[in-house]
């Protein structure tokens, strides 16, 4: 890969990581939503730089939807942020996990079998469709069932809440 692509990738990585830190540490609200947007832009850009356009579009949609869903929750208040001992132990454990993963990436013997990004196209939709709906159709169906279950559960809860609110009125 040329130097310009590398610089672009690391710039997008900086954007994504700063957004991820914002998601982790900022209180709920518009700042956290902005952090989600940064993560979405950075992650989708990195996927696109690595010639995975289909995954980039999916990551953009998923991260923006997650931001819309989770950024305002819970309502801003003193109980949202954890500064106790458990949170500090968790932060140290996350740092240790990062150190272990980075060491494994640095010392691991990885087989180098590169292919050119342009050979299969940026989106590579035909190959993705063959894999998702052909070879690994069961995994796709499981993911679809999970999404359907989540939507049905959310719809049922909302309907129950609406009926209860109408009765109380």
């Amino acid at each position: 890969m040329d130097a310009l692509t590398s610089v672009l990738f690391y710039a997008l990585a900086a954007v994504a990581l700063s957004g991820a830190l914002g998601v982790a540490l900022l209180p709920a609200g518009s700042l956290r939503a902005l952090a989600f947007v940064l993560v979405a832009a950075g992650a989708a850009g990195m996927y696109a730089v690595l010639a995975a356009g289909f995954a980039a579009v999916v990551a953009l949609v998923v991260l923006l939807a997650s931001g819309l869903l989770l950024a305002p929750l819970p309502a801003a208040g003193p109980s949202t942020a954890s500064s106790g001992r458990a949170g500090q132990v968790g932060a140290v454990a996350c740092a240790a996990l990062f150190a272990v993963l980075a060491y494994a990436a640095y010392r691991g013997g990885l087989f180098h079998g590169t292919y050119a990004a342009g050979d299969f196209g940026l989106f590579n939709a035909a190959a993705m469709g063959r894999l998702l709906f052909g070879r690994d159709a069961l995994a796709t169906e499981a993911a679809g069932a999970l999404l359907l279950l989540a939507l049905v559960t959310g719809g049922a809860r909302w309907a129950g809440w609406a009926v209860t609110a109408r009765r109380r009125r």
Binding site: T5, S6, Y10, V23, L97, A105
Partner: peptide, 27 residues
């Protein structure tokens, strides 16, 4: 500067660790 798999895995590890930090830091 060259982009290698090790660099990508470093960034991926940082993202995973930050996600777990977000899960651990919030009450």
């Amino acid at each position: 500067m060259n982009l290698t798999l090790v660099g990508i895995l470093f960034v991926a590890a940082a993202l995973v660790a930050t996600g777990l930090l977000a899960a651990a830091w919030r009450r």
